[in-house]
């Protein structure tokens, strides 16, 4: 993998002026704890500013089944941990102008990747079979997606245009990034805002 992350400064095409004058924004929740989305909601009254300029076309808080076409900006929370994530990430890349790794799990693998030191088979056994109750295994039915042997950050699977580090990123970082993206500007952080963790 080792997808080369390109510097958004040169690369990310500004979001094109959408038909109704609003940016088509999506947020996605993959291998993460939803903390980044919580922090996103903590934008509070800034959310009003945001949605004055953007339509939320896909999001875990908006219960849509299919990832839509022609998205301008997609914020992806969480790491790539299973085959469904792989599939969705590829769709996101195809259908979004700008893809943003949103939070440490997407950027580095972070807590989600703590399991990378374990064998994936042992992992399922430890968590589901030795734990309380029996849970579908995923191998023999169609319910659970197969886990990848290693959790990987988003940019090691698809090209990512900007990174918002933080676990979770605080609202300042989110707002700095989102307002830049809405304005068609590259995301630029002060060093303190780039800290992981």
């Amino acid at each position: 993998m080792a997808r080369k992350q390109t510097n958004p400064r040169e690369d990310a095409a500004p979001a094109a002026p959408p038909s109704n004058g609003k940016i088509r924004l999506a947020t996605v929740w993959m291998g993460g704890c939803s903390g980044c989305h919580m922090s996103f909601l903590d934008l509070d009254e800034k959310l009003l500013d945001l949605f004055a300029q953007a339509d939320l076309v896909y999001s875990p808080i908006a219960d849509l089944k299919e990832f839509p076409e022609n998205v301008d900006v997609t914020l992806v929370e969480g790491a790539i941990a299973n085959v469904d994530h792989v599939k969705l990430a590829k769709e996101i890349r195809e259908r979004s102008k700008i893809v943003v790794s949103f939070g440490d799990c997407a950027v580095t693998g972070n807590v989600t990747s703590l399991r990378n030191r374990l064998q994936v088979d042992d992992l399922l056994t430890k968590v589901y079979h030795e734990g309380p109750g029996s849970v579908p295994h995923g191998d023999d039915d169609d319910i659970m997606p197969a886990l990848l042997p290693r959790v990987i950050p988003l940019h090691q699977l698809i090209k990512v245009d900007a990174f918002i580090p933080g676990c979770p990123p605080d609202t300042d970082r989110i707002w700095t990034a989102v307002s830049a993206l809405l304005a068609g500007q590259p995301v630029e952080f002060e060093p303190e805002m780039r800290l992981f963790g």
Partner: peptide
């Protein structure tokens, strides 16, 4: 094969090498 080419329709992650290995092992 590269992880990008992983067959995501399969619910089974094959360890035998026919499937992709994100090669972090």
């Amino acid at each position: 094969i590269p992880v990008q080419e992983l067959n995501t329709n399969s619910r089974v992650y094959s360890q035998n090498g026919a499937q992709a290995e994100p090669a972090q092992a």
